[in-house]
Design a protein around this nucleic acid. Sequence first.
DNA 1: CGAATTTGACCTGCGC
DNA 2: GCGCAGGTCAAATTCG
Length: 395
Amino acid sequence: METASGKSVHGSVAFDNEKKMSLDGGEEAVLVELNKDNLLGRAKAKITEAREQNLRLKQLLSQLEKDYQSLQKHFYEIFEQEQESKTLSRKTETASEDSDQQELLCLCLGRSSSEPNNIRKKSNILVNGVGDDMKTNGSSLSLGVDCKIETASKPTTKNPSSEDIVEDNKGAKLTPEILPPSKILKTKEVQGDEVSRDTQTKKPRVSVKARVQTPMMNDGCQWRKYGQKIAKGNPCPRAYYRCTVSPTCPVRKQVQRCSEDLTILITTYEGTHNHPLSLSATAMASTTSAAVSMLQSCPSTSSRQGQVTSVFSPSPIGGLLNFSHFQDTSQHQFYLPNSSMSTSASTSHPAVTLDFTAPTINTIHFDNCSNTTPPGHFSTYLNFSSPYSPSLEHN
DNA sequence: CGAATTTGACCTGCGC
DNA sequence: GCGCAGGTCAAATTCG
């Protein structure tokens, strides 16, 4: 039975056949046209999508910049308030305490806090001399060199601060000849000064323990590997790196995985940068330098070999720590968020360990500071693995 | 091809 | 003085 539908079916088949016939003639050209239209449409859609995404990213970036600037501004405000109150309280102190005041070390983000405006001016002078990209920052980000200017302007003190000792190491870079660190050390030894040789040759070290999945902690500096060794008692090799930001920079670091927990990376810094640092590098350098300074300004700790002293002093300002526990009156102030800190003076090198692996403050062990029991908590974290972030992230 | 990394040799300090 | 371990050097190798 041939119905209308049957006819129509036949008819459609016939149409298809006709179409096929026609395709046989210019088939390829039509297909190419169709494909072109298709591709064009897809490409347009992709471009539109990419544009939208680009817009979103731009907005996100500008938002991030705004947040960062406001945070920076806020930080300055708090910082200056702190300094004003300190200055007022210190004005009442005697002249003898002034010498101690000179030893005040403030290393927050590499900006000296004792006289922020003056230091900024000084740092500008310095930066202009160096000619680094830090010019654009408008603020001092060069911790070590700031300190140097400060020390250079100072007369010699009976009890040199730790900064002085650190800067003594850097003093080698001021020699006309450009020498590698090892040569510098030898030169200094030849020059003598038996008394201070120990403190100069045995550079203080700062170890940073952090949970880092990457092979190396991103601390904002450029490093060049110059050696690797298998240390006794640890199957993981220890890598030796040298700072390559400046050819004369004496800073070295050792990187080693913790044998007990392979996720923990132990980075040991030695020396002080003699060049301006990036923002992210400055945060780390400030913390480590301050830790070294603290260690060196505590002769009692250094004299007791092998003794470990853990320190923790919470501050009302999120993550800003005031170290004022030592026998001298100097105060050390720097960011050390959510971490524990221990100092030790072995026979070879005085060392400070900053332990960022502790998830909460409750896990921190206090050996020698029963008076400074830390009831508080911090909301700040150091993010070493972030390639961009200025290391200090406020939640 | 230059820069960075690897790796064995060498140096130095320290304990016995 | 000797051996060990940590640290550095520098030639060889790899990488971009």
